[in-house]
Every structure is written in C-alpha cells, then in structure tokens.
Design a protein around this nucleic acid. Structure first.
Lengths: 156, 156
DNA sequence: TGATAACAGACCAAAATGGTCTGCGATTAC
DNA sequence: GTAATCGCAGACCATTTTGGTCTGTTATCA
C-alpha cells in the first residue's frame, strides 16, 4: 500500500552510489551489489532499465560497467521511479485501459484523488537524487521567514 | 507501486456516500454496495474496520446500518487509509520489525526518503473527506497572489 | 420469535513482487 | 584471433499481497 518497491530502492541506491564518484568512473554491477548486499541478477535488470531510459550509460567490455549520463542534481526521484516501474498512479483504477473499473460511472471521488496524486508526483519530481545525499538538519539553523513547499522552515 | 488499494477506494466511496446524507440517517452495506457496484462481503469488512476505528457507528438491527460518527470535514483521507490498511510507509524496509533490511547499514538514502514520506502523509492528513466532494475548478477564477501548499494558485 | 441487519473468520484465486537460472552479445587485453 | 570480462535478454519460479468468496454467528426490534 503506497509503498516503493525494492527495485526502486535498488535503483536509488545505485544512482546514489554512482553519484559519489567521478562522472567518468565506471561502476560494475558487482561493485554496487556488493556494496549494498543486493542480488546481482536483479540489480542487473534494474540498471538495464535505467540505461535504456537514458539515465545511465553502459559500456560492455572488460573494465566496463555503468556511468551516469547526467549529474545527479539533474535527475529527479520521479525519473528513476518511472524508469524502473513505469508511470505511477495512486488510483487503483488507473492501470490498464483494457480493464474497466466497476465504479467508474458513479465514482465521484476520482478527480480529487487525482489532485492528490498530482501533488505527490510534484514532490517526487522536484526532489533530485542529489538531495538523497543530504542529511536532514537536526537542530537549529532555520532561515527566518523562509519556507519550503510544505510550509516547513528552510535550514542553513 | 505507490497505489491505493481497492479497499481504500471502497472506504473512501462509502464515507463519501454517507457524508451526503443526514448525519442520523443510516446506510446499509446493501445501499452502498449497490450504489457503487462493490461486492457486499468485502465492503462489509471495510465498514467493520472503519467502525472499529471509531469513524463509523454501527447499529445492528433491522432498519440498522452505519452512520458517521463525525462530519466528513473532520475526517482526513489519512485516517481512512490508516483504518483500513494500517499505518503506511513508502519505504520497502519500513514494514515488519522481525524482518531485517539487508541494506540497512549501508543505506544512505533512508532519511531523505522518510522526509518525502512525511510530506505525503502531510498531504493526506490535511485533505478532508469533504474535499473529496469538491470538483476541481476548470477555468479562470484564480485568486491573485494566493497559492496553496504546493505553490499552485488558489481559486475562487 | 423470526426477519434483518452487522460481525467474524476461514478459505481461495489472481496478481504483483522479488528473485533465480540459463544462455547470448559486445568489447578489449593479451 | 580468442579468451576473459563485462552487460543483455528472457524464461521461469516462489512468496507475498490483494481481492474476493463462503459459511456461520450475534444483536436488535417489530
């Protein structure tokens, strides 16, 4: 229920891993899977998807591996999710066009839920992988009068 | 992936249904399931959970059924979700305490993801069931200089 | 006291998810 | 040129989650 999949977790970890190396340094599946204890085969598939979607550059050869195609600050969480799981929809009726939702004609709550969904997507789209590296500030340091998108105070 | 379950859909629809009747008018499972084409048995369980959590008042007797315990404007989407599915966590490692996440010790992305989760919960907590009834404005009518929590314009 | 409503839980089927296995294709160091 | 090292591809399977069914019980009231 409203949960990210393991594959997304793995993708985020892998991207994060590569983001903390030189742009031109290759990382192999083995490197990453050993670092995070992720099964190699499944990580392989995840990285394949990421490279198909243009987030990674693959280089198959000895001494090959993957590199980032863009710096992590230019890649959003949403892009990663979309790459490995396809477009997301929180509505249970938003999946296949073939199957028809039984409730659709009487469903008066659809459009408001879509608004919520839009906001969630907005959140994910506007958080970059770079921010995944930033620890959350613990004490003090608020910037007076400055608030983020959810009305929470910004920190120095 | 990041999707609401049918049970939550059913719960929201049922609450919405009851919200548009007099507070003291009872609705039966049959009423609601017929209105939305929802299987009776499963709707029954959903409503049971809602009444156990104190969102509904049940009255079992002939001419009995369910009534809302509070007006819908005082009930958040999050409350409904929590009632039927339990507390939500977008992290795939946030489930059971018994199972240990393989990546936990090297997981450097946990706390940022928890921030995202917090924001999503905030969204769901701050949208009431009443808002589920409000259609989204289509054209014009923006209030100049007024924006909602996501920086989107407010409407008249 | 029996009809009508909710309550309870075992049970099952389908789908999503996480993971394994097996083999192929590309590149390059030697 | 060829063998080692890397990614690519897809069939396959086990587990978990989800959606739904079935059977029977309990409470209330006309």
């Amino acid at each position: 229920m409203l949960k990210l999949t393991k594959k997304v977790d793995y993708a985020l970890l892998a991207m994060h891993f590569m983001g903390h190396q030189d742009m031109d340094q290759v990382s192999t599946i083995r490197d990453i899977s050993e670092n995070y204890q992720i099964p190699m085969e499944i990580l392989a598939k995840v990285l394949q998807k990421l490279s198909k979607k243009g987030l990674l550059q693959s280089h198959h050869a000895p001494k090959g591996g993957y590199t980032l195609k863009r710096p992590i600050r230019e890649i959003s969480i949403l892009e990663v999710i979309n790459a490995v799981e396809g477009p997301i929809g929180i509505l249970s009726c938003s999946e296949g066009q073939d199957k028809v939702c039984q409730q659709i004609e009487n469903c008066d709550i659809r459009s408001p839920l879509e608004r919520i969904q839009g906001k969630i997507l907005w959140l994910l789209e506007n958080m970059s992988l770079e921010e995944l590296s930033q620890a959350v500030p613990t004490t003090g340091g608020v910037i007076h009068g400055s608030f983020d998108l959810l009305g929470q105070p910004r920190y120095h």
